[in-house]
Amino acid sequence: MRALTFSEYGPASVLEVADVPEPHAGPGHIRVGVRASGLTPADCHLRSGRFRAMAPLRLPHVLGMDAAGVVDEVGPGVTGIRPGDEVFGIVEVAQLGGANAEYAVLAAWAPKPDALSWEQAGGAAGNVETATRALDRLEIGTGTTLLIEGAAGGVGT
């Protein structure tokens, strides 16, 4: 399968499209045929080597944490989803990448809203999950008004 990879840390010029082995859905995961995937500032820091001390990568590395696509494999223990479903989601955080490829294994996902294009959904999952987690921790309930002053970036928006 083709994927966006890098084999050494450095500037954007170290990126290349390469053939890599296809991943497969393990327990609790799904695999999607990727229609769109995101590239975040964190991906750029991983590629540059800036996060090397706290997040060492096995090289070559496939970039990308967010993806949207069509489910084609469902791992053991996964219920409520089947091949052919359209979803958006994120790869396993410990993996720190793998979504900028023809296929990606997602650890967290949701149905792709019809109102989002593939491109919008392909870059939204990490931000949506982070914002949702923050709101859940604040225990924001129905009918509550929350003012978020100075919100910026994907999560804040």
Rank of each mutant, 00 (worst) to 15 (best):
K112N: 06
T40Y: 05
C44W: 13
A101N: 10
A101I: 10
P27Q: 08
V20L: 07
P83W: 02
L59W: 06
V93Q: 12
C44G: 14
L106R: 05
Y103D: 11
L135D: 06
L135G: 13
L146K: 10
G80R: 10
V105Q: 10
G64P: 11
C44P: 00
W109H: 07
G154E: 06
H29S: 08
L106P: 14
E149K: 15
F88N: 02
S37F: 14
D136V: 15
T157Q: 08
V155F: 11
G89I: 07
D43G: 10
K112P: 00
V20F: 05
A124R: 02
P113K: 11
Q120N: 12
V91Q: 03
A125E: 05
D66R: 04
P76F: 06
R35E: 03
P11M: 02
G123E: 09
P113V: 00
N100W: 08
T142P: 07
N100L: 14
C44I: 11
D114G: 02
I81G: 03
G80N: 05
R50E: 03
D19W: 04
L106F: 10
L63W: 02
A25C: 08
V70G: 01
A25Y: 00
E86W: 00
G122L: 12
E139H: 14
A124L: 15
A3P: 04
R50F: 10
R82C: 08
V70A: 01
L116C: 07
G38D: 09
A12H: 02
R47G: 05
G69K: 06
L39F: 11
D43Q: 11
A121S: 12
P41H: 13
T79Y: 02
S37R: 02
H61I: 01
L106I: 14
A107I: 04
T145Y: 09
G154T: 11
P23Y: 02
I30E: 03
D66G: 09
P60A: 05
P11T: 12
V34A: 11
G126A: 15
R50W: 07
L63Q: 06
M1Q: 08
A12T: 03
T130D: 07
T40H: 13
T132Q: 14
G10E: 03
E86F: 03
R47H: 04
F51C: 00
W109F: 15
A18D: 15
N127Q: 13
F6Q: 02
L116G: 05
D85Y: 00
T142D: 10
G33D: 04
L146G: 06
G38S: 06
G150C: 07
A25W: 04
P56Y: 13
P83D: 08
P21G: 01
L39A: 00
D85Q: 03
I140D: 06
S48C: 09
T142R: 13
P41I: 08
G150F: 11
F88H: 01
N100S: 15
A104R: 00
G28E: 04
P83T: 01
P23I: 05
V78R: 07
G89E: 00
P76G: 01
A104L: 10
G10R: 08
V32C: 00
I81L: 08
T130H: 12
E8C: 06
R35L: 01
H61C: 06
V105I: 14
I30M: 07
T40G: 02
H45Y: 13
G122V: 08
T40E: 09
G84T: 04
E149V: 15
T142V: 08
A108R: 14
V155I: 15
G153V: 13
I148N: 15
D136Q: 14
V78L: 01
T40P: 01
